[in-house]
Design a protein around this nucleic acid. Structure first.
Length: 425
RNA sequence: GUGGAUGUAGCUCAGCUGGUCAGAGCACCAGAUUGUGGCUCUGGGGGCCGUGGGUUCGAGUCCCAUCAUCCACCCCA
């Protein structure tokens, strides 16, 4: 019989690893809450149409990466490939816009994209993201970026590169796009295969192409920045001003276009060179028309998403943070020297746990010696010895596993004495 | 979707040109220490060598297919 393994591009997070996840998740969640964001949890699948409309028909995500299936009632559903669409849907569906604005949300959870796996890229991966609805102020853009920068700092990943650009509003973007089409059309034959397609589907993406021939073809073409309307230009420079005043360093990147169709004005990406080919750990931007596009009122938004797997990889390889120290161990082990005192051991175990002490005992009939070894491997700092002598004379023997000292304590002083040893460091 | 590398015990890996090649280290269990850990020593369990075909008297070892992992492209998180 063929062994069943986790599906391609998916993996298990075993307890030793989940402790590491909890560490970075806590940093992100705590930071977002300090910035005034509250958690939203949305379904992991949505109507396929939601992503087609929001992410964009021409994007890689929609054209080839979605996990789409038909359910028993013949609905077309899709495992979410990103988080913003669901937030927008929920924002509209619950009329959240009729309450206090702006609305600031964060989320964390699995996303799904049918892609070829490699380091830092999985079919089920995890994103932590935030969205701000209801403010078109450049300060909102800046806040979101500052939150992102703060998270990176708290993760001790300070060597990140923040690339930002403005893709303009629908007006100046469309005008620019038309100019680009006019410019490229005669050079079309020189473009790479992929760009031939981009040419017709999303010409702006040609700017982002890494192929030499395409880079040369677009060389000298005015940047989108130069084509921004006065309003968009002002918005962008305001965002940059805030970042500069806040000492958030960034790189203005004329070629940054982003793969999702809904972005307007500010777009940004965070890279960590040093974690492999998939160095983008996060990205985001402003999306002015998205809520309206999805059937809601004309309310703007800004947000970002961070890739948890890539950040974890980065913390492990790029920082000196020892993620293994977050493993939760055992404080106290109860070693039973004679089977007949098992019931009493269970009572003590319960008593210690009632006192919030992480306590454990053996359940597989180990010898006294084996129990000590076991206690040591579990990382127990104190062992309570329970044998004939203790029972007859009415005390417990406490062994401090750090220094080997043993003391005899009365039953009623047990918790107190254990805590005294545990509190030492 | 394209190209390349790899797939032997829970983990990291040896196994040269096909014929004791089913191994090592770590981990796990037990004993030395029958009421006591960390060191040491001794012993033990565990693998149909990713899967399915083929070549051969004989295949971890060669060929094909398939699945999976890794690397790069693409793209992104």
């Amino acid at each position: 019989m063929m062994q069943i393994k986790a599906p391609r591009g998916t993996y298990d997070i075993l307890p030793n690893d989940s402790a590491k996840w909890q560490y970075i998740e806590k940093i992100m969640k705590d930071t977002a809450e300090i910035y005034g964001y509250r958690e939203i949890r949305t379904p992991i699948f949505e109507h396929t149409e939601l992503f087609e409309r929001s992410v964009g028909e021409s994007t890689d995500i929609v054209t080839k990466e979605m996990y789409t299936f038909v359910d028993k009632a013949r609905r077309s559903l899709t495992l979410r490939p990103e988080g913003t669409a669901s937030c927008v849907r929920a924002f509209i569906e619950h009329g959240v816009y009729s309450g206090l604005m702006p609305v600031k949300w964060y989320y964390n959870g699995p996303m799904f994209r049918y892609d070829r796996p490699q380091t830092g890229r999985y079919r089920q991966f995890h994103q932590f993201g935030v969205e701000v609805f209801g403010s078109s102020s450049p300060y909102a853009d800046a806040e979101v970026i500052m939150l992102l920068a703060e998270i990176m700092t708290r993760l001790k990943l300070t060597d990140y590169e923040l690339h930002i650009n403005s893709v303009g509003c629908s007006l100046c973007r469309n005008a620019y796009q038309q100019k680009l089409i006019d410019y490229i059309t005669p050079l079309r034959a020189a473009l790479c295969r992929d760009c031939q397609l981009r040419y017709s589907k999303n010409p702006l993406r040609v700017l982002d192409c890494k192929t030499k021939s395409c880079q040369e073809a677009i060389e000298g073409f005015p940047t989108i920045y130069d084509s921004l309307c006065a309003e968009c230009r002002e918005h962008y420079s305001a965002v940059r001003d805030v970042l500069e005043h806040s000492n958030v360093s960034y790189i203005h990147d004329d070629n940054l276009v982003r793969g999702l169709d809904y972005y307007t004005n500010t777009a940004f990406e965070v890279h960590l060179p040093g974690i492999g080919a998939q160095s983008a750990v996060g990205g985001g931007g402003r999306y002015s028309g998205l809520v309206a596009e999805c059937g809601g009122p004309d309310i703007p938004g800004v947000g970002f998403a961070l890739g948890m797997e890539r950040l974890l990889l980065a913390v492990e390889t790029l920082t000196d943070v020892d993620l293994n120290r977050f493993q939760s161990g055992v404080d106290v082990f109860i070693a039973v020297m004679d089977d007949k005192y098992e019931p009493q051991a269970v009572r003590i175990l319960h008593q210690l746990r009632q006192a919030d002490i992480k306590a454990e005992k053996d359940y597989v009939g180990r010898s006294a010696r084996a129990q000590m070894k076991y206690a040591d491997k579990l990382g127990a700092r104190v062992v309570v010895l329970l044998g004939e002598e203790e029972v007859l004379k009415g005390f417990f023997t406490l062994r401090n596993m750090q220094n080997g000292e043993q003391v005899q304590v009365k039953s009623q002083d047990l918790v107190h004495n254990i805590n005294r040893i545990l509190l030492v460091d």
